[in-house]
Each structure stands twice: as C-alpha cells, then as structure tokens.
Design a protein around this nucleic acid. Sequence first.
DNA 1: CGAGTTTTTGAGCGCTCTCAATTAAAGTGG
DNA 2: CCACTTTAATTGAGAGCGCTCAAAAACTCG
Lengths: 192, 192
Amino acid sequence: MSSVRNVLSGIASLTQTMEDGRRQMVGLLLPSDFVGRPGRSAAAFDVTATTDLVMCCFRKKPFEEMMSATPHVAQRLLEMTLDELDAAREWMLLLGRKTAREKIASLISIIARRDAALHLRKRTGPLSVDLPLTREEMADYLGLTLETVSRQISALKKDGVITLEGNRHVLIPDIDRLLEEAGDDSDGGMLV
Amino acid sequence: MSSVRNVLSGIASLTQTMEDGRRQMVGLLLPSDFVGRPGRSAAAFDVTATTDLVMCCFRKKPFEEMMSATPHVAQRLLEMTLDELDAAREWMLLLGRKTAREKIASLISIIARRDAALHLRKRTGPLSVDLPLTREEMADYLGLTLETVSRQISALKKDGVITLEGNRHVLIPDIDRLLEEAGDDSDGGMLV
DNA sequence: CGAGTTTTTGAGCGCTCTCAATTAAAGTGG
DNA sequence: CCACTTTAATTGAGAGCGCTCAAAAACTCG
C-alpha cells in the first residue's frame, strides 16, 4: 500500500474479516472513488475486485507533495471523504436496525439511485437495475447470510415490489413502493 | 448548522432515527473530535449531548477561508476524517457480524482503549473504566435492545470477564480475556 | 450435454426481541 | 433524614426473525 488509487472502471469491495471467517463489507468502490490513505501506511481492510477493474495509481510521495502544493486537492479529497463518512453512517443504520427485508429493499434502491445519478437517462417504463454483486456479496454487504438474501428477494418478488429478469437484473415497477419497503424517509434522495 | 465545532469536554452522540423510532448511534463525539461539514450546509444526523458539553465554535465562512489559506489545516482535517472513517468501518463489522456478547465486550474494550490513550496513567491493579453511556445509549450504539445489553453485561459479570462497581463502573481483571470475548484479532491495538 | 458454480427452497433451531414485572438508584419535597 | 416519585437497570417468559444444515434447481461455460 505504497500508493494511492482512483477507480476508473469496474467495482471493488472493501471487506473486513474476523478470525473465524465472518466477513463484513465496509465499502463499495465505484468509478471515481478513491482508495488509500495519504499519511498512513497500513491498510486495515481487504480490497477485492468484484469485476474487472481499472485503477489510476499514484505513488504516495509525489501525491503527498502535490497535496501540500495545491490546497484545492486536499479540500476536494476532504469533501469526498466526508461523503464516504456520511454513506458509512447510513450504512450503520441499515446494519444495526433494519430488518432483512428492509436491508434488501435499501440495497436495491441504493444501487438504483447511483445508477440514475451516473446515467441520467430518461426512464421509459419501469426502472431497471443490474445488481453488480453475487448473493453472497450482497449478504456480506448487508450483514446477512446468502440464504436470507435469496429468501427476501423472492419475497419482494412475490409481493410485486420487484420483478426479476435472470438473477442479476431487477425491474422496479414502483420506486416509491420500494423506498417504503426500505424504511427510509419518504422520497429519500430525489431519485424520482 | 452554520458553524463548525470542536469538542473540548464532555460527550455527545451522533444518531440517526427512522420514522417509527428505531434509533442507531453513528458516532460518538469525544474531546478533540470535530463536528460539522466545511462545504455542506445540512446536517444529516442528530447531535445530542449525553453529558455536559463544552464546544469551541467557529463560524463557517471564516473557517473555510482559513482552510484555503493554510493547507496544513485541511490536511490535518482530512487525516482526522480518515480516522473517523476507519472507526466507522470497524463499527460496521461489529453491527453486521458480531453477537450480542461480542458487541458488549467490544464496547467495553473500545472505551478502555480510549481511556488509556487519553490518560496514559500507569495501571495499578485491574484496569477500571467508567461507562459514559446509559444502557439504552449502549443499545443504540450496538444495534441491540437495552434488555439484551443488560443481560449480556450480567453474563460477562457472571463469567468473571468483568466486575461491576455500581452501574457505570467496570473493572477488567484480564484485558486479554475481554479482547478474546470481543472477537477481535488478538492484542488488538496495543492496549497492553 | 455435463461439470461446476450460483441460487433457490425447505425444515428446525437459537439468539435476540417483545412484553411485563421487579429491583435498584437518583432526585424531590416535607 | 426519610417517604415518595421518577428514572434506570435487572430479570423472566414466550415468540419470531434470521441462521444453520441440507438438498434441489437454475444458471454458466467449456
């Protein structure tokens, strides 16, 4: 970890593992996200690519020098880190207090929101989302077992909240309904 | 939230609440901790003092100007925020994967560690720690109910992992035993 | 098509929650 | 200083959600 990186394309996950193998995902690295710590050397978490991944790497020393030279870089980095901290805190609410069904609904709506923010495409017909994670990865994300993930997805499908096309593609007929299931404040985050 | 603050003394908590009242603590503000977001206006979380509190407040505009002027401030702030992010991620592992007993043991050892780092006093006899939180606040911290918190504390007491003096004061005869119960990697964080 | 992986589904159990009552501690006012 | 109220903490009994273990089904890819 002698370098700092920036994700250009693909998805990686930050995970933490206990001695007996229990695993918790603690971050999801998407294009434009930043990895590494200017100022510290050791990485406390495992970084795993879940898809093909292209990153832009800087060596640490020159990067730190650049940070000292141009204050805007440090400021921008601070802003990004604060955003990550906010995201981590929402995630903590999910992990600590939400039911399995709410966790699944939250995950799908989070992915839908990010997708919408990224593509900005007009939605014709129902919103559709690709899940970039396996069931097991979703389980690690949500603090569940993969069986529970699968069961809750099936339940949401049975109740008409979502429709499945294959295993990885989800159709959302009514986004408000999904957000309601997620237990978030209504119209959470101007997705509509 | 038109200002930025620094905790001087006392303890405050950052909490997030769902519509139906479920509550999760997402941050614990201790002396030297920083509150507020240079760059953003709305606070997404509730800040509550859990003890008498003294904070040092800056108005936002001058503070941001100072940040632009002196790069070291922004850099230091970035470092602190990255530390908070690391803490949040450890917390996520706790919330998502640890058992109730492990959560309690983790909380006590976290408080013990912070206390040791703060006071740097020689420990004569068993390590002793004051819990700055009520059972309910501990429950909100750990994603449990207050009944479960109470039960697990009683269980740890019964098993000799800790001793209670009153409700808020804990004696730790064997810190390694406690860390083992917490499920953390052995000798986690040079507390010994 | 067949071997491997991923996902779904089932049955039963256990940990934590819920609801409720009791005990302990901390203020309050006479 | 001691009843009395209020708040905090403990403990009990029972139920439910999510986990564990196990097997079947669906998808992937050579």
